[in-house]
Design a binder for these strands. Sequence first.
DNA 1: AACCTCATGTAACACGTTACATGATTAT
DNA 2: ATAATCATGTAACGTGTTACATGAGGTT
Lengths: 178, 178
Amino acid sequence: MSRRPQTEIAILGALSIGPMTGYELRAAITDVLGDFWHESFGQIYPTLATLEESGSVRRATPGRTSGSRFEITSAGRAVLRERLAEPHTAPPPRNALLLRLFFGSELPPGRAAELLRAEIDRATTALGRFAAIRAEVVAEPESEARTFRSLTLSYGEHHARAHLTWAREALAALPQDL
Amino acid sequence: MSRRPQTEIAILGALSIGPMTGYELRAAITDVLGDFWHESFGQIYPTLATLEESGSVRRATPGRTSGSRFEITSAGRAVLRERLAEPHTAPPPRNALLLRLFFGSELPPGRAAELLRAEIDRATTALGRFAAIRAEVVAEPESEARTFRSLTLSYGEHHARAHLTWAREALAALPQDL
DNA sequence: AACCTCATGTAACACGTTACATGATTAT
DNA sequence: ATAATCATGTAACGTGTTACATGAGGTT
């Protein structure tokens, strides 16, 4: 066991597109991977330091300390490929929404319906965002990268639609007095 | 901020069904909530101690130290209702599968397809399990508890179906040489 | 001068897993 | 008796968040 932190994969992956500062890295991860991945500054900066020490990344503009972009080295690319090929283990499930709904009888009246309506909103918003991204992706020239980007987007679309359908059905199935 | 740990909700919720030892608690949570919740012994025992101290649970057979079942007190029921009504915050997303697929161009040939086939298996297995549970739920007499159990089961069914469809589509969309 | 955004970092904490140690009960 | 299972607990560690502190650079 004891796998290295996945943050390294996300950072090396992002830097494989182009050099970035820690700050830009976080923005890029939020923008591009935000629907299925997240990193905080508290993870990014220490991890960048580790990766620099191990030679996986280097400063593209070595002089400055503030605002210097990091670029991935060829050793770093090798590490990225290794780490991506490692088996992933899904963390044990902890779905706070379902936990609340399972014990829904203990919820104040109307609360379950409220939770479901919030989910409908969230899913609807997500579907709108996905539609915009889909339009972008369709316009891109065909490439391997586009294939994989489309594939992850498709994941979001399928799950968001399922979520929306579920929440609507569930809301309809709830008796009035709950 | 600084919400109390969700483990308390899961334990109080489980004990609201009936008294259990820590060991039985873990089995019950795994069996009944296992598709969307998880607790380890390392969480259960310390939390039980905390809950006992705060008067939310008490030992049903006070004499013994080993094998004594815990039961929820009326104070504990009040805590459960409060905690269930609290807003839940979804943890930031960290989907290791999608992270790998997004950077799929860096994966060894065939690895992406392998990942997708594994997902198809997982989703298929899950759907089988859900079908068995569905049969049980349908046979139960109508009750509030059944309504909510059905609702969480339905979540699993919708998402597993979506997952399966997605993985099949994605596999079909992958060029042969990836 | 004040302010915003870019930028970097650390310290404290929360949460959870895993591995280990230990003992009681029950079945063979 | 011995093995399996039931049962309880702790210690070490990993991973991640949040809040805070600090400062550079450019804009109004």
